[in-house]
Every structure is written in structure tokens, then in C-alpha cells.
Design a protein around this nucleic acid. Structure first.
Lengths: 352, 352
DNA sequence: GTTAGCACTCTCTTTGATTGAGTGCTAACT
DNA sequence: AGTTAGCACTCAATCAAAGAGAGTGCTAAC
């Protein structure tokens, strides 16, 4: 028995009906709505075959059929060939919405997941690039008030992190630039994540640097290093969590609660995304997911890159009967938009 | 007929039973669990009186009674006298949790609502102070890369806002300090919200300032002003929205959805909080709320202050049968903690 | 190979009976 | 006069039985 043309037509009809209505599909429905020119009886025979082949299941003997994960996999692989070739027309529009006025990386991600969940009606999330992997370009101390100094950590990607330092005793403004220079010189080229390991050495080295040799600085150093070490490890943004309340499969509050509590746990989501393949676009259907909690969910993720290097993933999670067509192209568009935006705004400029 | 001592005891017993179980309370339950030394029959008579007085209602003839908004109002007013006098013991602990490592105002608020919803098991939110009301103390431009300059706007409260400016043509680093000085001089003392109105004047004045007279600057100015004008108007943080899924009154997914979509609309929440009284602590029970959507909810809000001036509110929203005792004291504690933290970290230092 | 017909299955909805928590009233008691 | 036991009554919630409806599988005819 093989998937002949008619079987394929019927299978696709069932899948697309089930995606729309979340209700088991009967032979009559297919025959009427998807006019294949054959009677329900014929369709019943074919459906029986499709069930034997593992593409359909019946929730109970006298009900219609619903697609299995295998069916979705077939459907998606088929879709895949078409999506790949169609170019997204509205990329510029997307860029405009996502691109943030304040040029903040986090804002770009927040916008992205917001748009993504609005467009797909599912839950979406993004893992922000691991800040700790970034390399320090320069440190700049800026006086704010007598006892407050703002430390700006300028990264190679031109992302600027700010840390407010509270002083025990004031440091004259005029010294701050010199201190900044010394700090920059010593910390240049190090990754943020390495600071914690080498901080003792750094402090020692700085101690012997003539310009920086002020009591105020020495007092400040351990505190300053500590603040850097405290930067967040992974950062996950999500949006549209409550979208799932609109779906009939989550009409049961208990189910909804379970899903939400899983998704709200950022570390589990981060793990989820780190365990996916390195593919540009990854589709994980139902039981293909390693997490048992997600056996009824599909996960569509795409990568975004900076200077050609993979730095994060953005994705959508929804029921296995999700609107793959829409989700796949939306995720792809938005991940492309993110890549473009960050490459334009945050790439390492070689001319320097 | 008046509220004698026994009626009060019975009323309180009913309220507290209903708060615990969300189920209509019968005379037998009261008689057994709250040993008042009288029989169910007597309690029935009293309950009937309390119903006549408007403190109780029966969902249907043969059910127990549930408290009305009037009952909660009585209960809360009574509680009020006691809460007022008890000092919160764990304020220091709270401060420690809320106080943010990075000294970011937004982080403080996010922590506050997180803690608040964790402690109360309800939904909580805070309106962040209106940034636009803040007065500019100083502007500092910091070079980031050849075509990027970070503009730091240092406010009187020592909050520092950063805006990344993308240049069309590079500005020599050495000029940036001078430009910063000119900008600071002209913009000092103005409120952020006024910048938009007076920007034309500012630009003109800066044009005639000798030090700042560089083409690069002139090109930058309109762009820079525009960025400032774009700062957000109100900022609402919320947390624990999905806590309501745990409550029996929201076992109905439709109800839950309605509640959530109301709360997720930041502007409606902002409006809600701005319409409450100026009281330090405000309690709005059920139909006392102006929003029809919240007729089954109670809203407990408290103010926080900077330099004695009210700058925002934080609050909890939950069902009318909420645990007022816990919520009131928690909201109060946390608002106090916020006040302390921001007064310590963000108050205008007079010595400067 | 396709289809009409029909018996069969199983869920969903409706209906009716039963249960149980709780009330209100009355009459007796303190 | 206030309190209480007793009892009839009410109504939501639960459960079982019946009926409807959607859909299947099989058979026999086209």
C-alpha cells in the first residue's frame, strides 16, 4: 500500500479541516467540502488505509479521524518545499515594526515576540544572545552625582550595558576619565563571562597601574567586578502565553495551567531551544519533542545570526494541529528581520 | 435591627469561611466550625436578619449565604483599624529582595510586582513614575563606535536614560565633551515632556553657541530631540496574571479570558490606577469599582513616594472574596519598601 | 474500482429520578 | 423573650437511562 495521489489529497483535506476546526473529520465532510468527486464510502475505504499506514487515528470507533504526528510530519515536509522558495514580501514592513526607536537589543526582541504571537495567535519566545559571550571593547565611567558613578560597558557589538555604582567616598570627576582608560586597557578583549575568573589578576594589575592608583578606585574594583559577574546568563522573552486560552484544546483549565506553568519557566524554555538542531529552521512535531509536557505541541524555531554566527533562536509553540503554513513563514520572516536589524545595528565594525 | 456582637461574629465567620472556600456558607458549618455556642437554628435566624440588612445574599433559596460587597466593606473597615497599627516586621527582608543589583528603576518595579503576586497569589501591578515629569540634570555623549554615539540623559533623580544615536558622519571624539556641555547647559532644568515644545528654540539657541557649532551637531539635533520626545508616557508592570487560573471563580475559561484581556491592556490598568483616590492605601470592593468588568473584583492599591511626593501606585487585583488581611498588609509593606528604596537611591541630592 | 444501503458503535444531549445541603417556620423549651 | 429541635420544603448537583446524531465497516450491487 502506498500514498497514491488520491490518498494524499484526502490526507491533506483531513489535516486542513482538523487544523481549522479541531474536530475529528468524517468521510461525509471531506466528500462535501473538498469535492474530490468520490462518495463518502470511497473516502471511508481510503481513510481506513490511511489509518493502517499510521497517518490517522480514531479517538473512538464511531468518530471521524484525526491526523497523527506522522501525518503532520508528512504535511509539513510537503509544505516545506514550497515555503522554501517563496520569498517574504513584507520583510521591510516587519523590520520597521520590530526595529526599536531606542536601539535597545532587548526591545527588539520584545517587539519580535509580540508581533510573532500576534500574527500566529500562538505563544512565541526568543532566547536573547548570551551577553556573557560578548567581548568588552571599552569601559567608561560617567559621573552622575557625588556618590554615584555610572559604569558603561561597551561591547564589541556596540551594545552598551550600564551599571550604577554607589560610592562610599566621592571620586573627583577629573579622575574618572583616567580610571576609565585604565579599566578599558586591562579589560579590553575579555569576554564578560571570563571576568569573574580573572578578576583577582585584573585587580592586582590595576593596583600597579600608576594612573589608576587612587584609594577610591581600589575600593571600587571588587564591587565593580562583582556587578559584571552578576549579568544574567540566558534571557528568554515570551509573549502571547494567554493566546492558548482561545484554543479549544485548552478549554480545560487544568491543561491550560500545566502548559502555562511550563512555558513560564524560562529555564525550561531556554533548555528546549538549546536542544534543537542547528538548522536554520527547525520543526518539532508532537512526540518528536523530548519534553513529555509538549507531546501535544509543535515547536517551530528559526535562528538569527550576527556576522554569520548563530547567536539565538526565536520560535512559536502551539498545538500539533497548528497552522503550519502561516507559522513557518512568519517565524522565518521575523527571524530574518531580526538578523537584518542586528547585523545593521550591532555588528562589529571592522573599520575601527 | 442593628449589628449586635453576635451578628458581627457570625458575619465575620461567614466571610472568613467564604474567603477560604469560595462556597456558600450554611448555618451548620458556622455552628460547628466557629463554635459560637448557639445552635444552627439560631444562626439561621441571625443570618436571615443579616440578609435583610444587606450583608448576605443567597444564590438560591436552598443554599447557604455568601457575603455582599457591603459585608466585605464592613469587614475591611474593621480590619483596617488593626492593620494600621501593626508595623510590618519584615520590611528589611522585603527591601533586600526588591532592591535591584543593577540599580535600575524598572527592575525594582518588576521585582516588586513579582514578589507581590507571589505573596498574595493574585494579580499585581504597578504604574511606574512618569518619566516625562522628570527634570534633566545633564546630558553626556559617549562615543561607542565611529558612527554611534550614546546619549546619556541624567535626570535630577539620578536615573540615567540612554539613547543610541546613529550618525551620518563621524564626530571627532574630542568634540563630544564640548557638545555635551552645551547640550547640558541648554537643557538643564527642563522637564522631559517639555522638550518637544521648546525644541525649536533650543535648536536655535544651540546654533548660536560657539562651542557647539559643528555641522555634525546641527545635523544631530532634531534627531536627538525627537528621540527624547519619544520616551514612553506611562509604564505599567504586572505579574501573576495567570494566578487567577488557580481560583475556582475562574474555572470557566471564558471568564478567565475576559479578566486577562482586561488586565493585559496596560492603558486600562493605568487609567484604573489614576482614577483611585489619593489615599495612601485605597481599597475598592466589587461594585465600588467604576469598571463594570471588575464588579466581582477588589482592588487594593498603595502609593509610593519620592521626596514626599506621590509618584505612583502599586496594587493587587483579585476576587472580592480575597484574603484582605494578607493582601492589605503585603501591599502596604511593599509600597513602603519601594518608597524607601527609591528615596535612598533616586532622591534629589541637595548637597550638589 | 466505486457506491448505495444498512446495521452497528459510541459520544453527546436530554430527561427524570434521587440525593443532600440548607432553609424557614412552628412549637416546645428555658 | 430568646433559643432550639423538628420537619416540610427547595433547589443545585449527581447519576442513570433514553434518544439523537455522526460516523464507521461491511456487503452486495453497479
Amino acid at each position: 500500500m502506498s500514498l497514491d495521489k488520491r490518498k494524499i489529497k484526502i490526507l491533506k483535506a483531513i489535516i486542513s479541516s482538523y487544523i481549522d476546526n479541531a474536530e475529528a473529520v468524517g468521510s461525509r465532510t471531506i466528500s462535501k467540502k473538498y469535492k474530490l468527486g468520490v462518495s463518502p464510502a470511497t473516502i471511508r475505504n481510503e481513510m481506513s488505509d490511511l489509518e493502517d499506514m499510521g497517518y490517522l487515528v480514531q479517538p473512538h470507533t464511531s468518530s471521524g479521524r484525526i491526523p497523527t504526528d506522522k501525518a503532520y510530519r508528512y504535511y509539513v515536509d510537503d509544505l516545506w518545499r514550497k515555503v522554501k522558495t517563496t520569498k517574504n514580501p513584507n520583510l521591510d514592513q516587519l523590520r520597521e515594526i520590530i526595529e526599536d526607536k531606542s536601539n535597545e537589543l532587548d526591545e527588539i526582541f520584545k517587539n519580535s515576540v509580540r508581533i510573532l504571537s500576534q500574527f500566529t495567535k500562538y505563544t512565541s519566545f526568543v532566547v536573547a544572545p548570551q551577553l556573557k559571550q560578548s567581548i568588552i571593547k571599552r569601559i567608561q565611567l560617567v559621573p552622575v552625582s557625588e556618590y554615584k558613578v555610572l559604569m558603561l560597558i561597551i561591547l564589541q557589538t556596540n551594545v552598551v550595558k550600564q551599571v550604577m555604582l554607589i560610592l562610599n567616598s566621592p571620586i573627583p570627576y577629573t579622575q574618572l576619565d583616567k580610571i576609565s582608560e585604565s579599566l578599558s586597557e586591562k579589560m579590553y578583549g575579555h569576554k564578560l563571562e571570563d571576568i569573574d575568573k580573572i578578576k583577582d589578576n585584573l585587580i592586582k594589575e590595576l593596583y600597579y597601574t600608576k594612573e589608576a592608583h587612587s584609594d577610591a578606585l581600589m575600593e571600587l574594583l571588587p564591587y565593580l567586578m562583582e556587578q559584571i559577574a552578576k549579568f544574567e546568563d540566558v534571557n528568554v522573552f515570551s509573549d502571547g502565553i494567554t493566546n492558548i486560552l482561545e484554543l479549544p484544546e485548552y478549554n480545560d483549565v487544568v491543561k491550560a495551567r500545566e502548559f502555562i506553568s511550563f512555558i513560564e519557566d524560562k529555564s525550561s524554555v531556554a533548555k528546549l531551544l538549546q536542544h534543537t538542531s542547528e538548522n536554520d529552521l527547525d520543526i518539532c512535531i508532537g512526540s518528536e519533542n523530548k519534553n513529555l509536557e509538549l507531546k501535544d505541541c509543535s515547536l517551530i524555531t528559526a535562528t538569527y545570526k550576527l556576522n554569520g554566527k548563530l547567536i539565538g533562536r526565536i520560535g512559536v509553540i502551539g498545538p500539533t494541529r497548528m497552522d503550519y503554513n502561516n507559522v513557518i513563514s512568519t517565524v522565518k520572516s521575523i527571524s530574518d528581520a531580526i538578523s537584518e536589524i542586528i547585523n545593521q545595528n550591532f555588528s562589529v565594525e571592522n573599520k575601527e
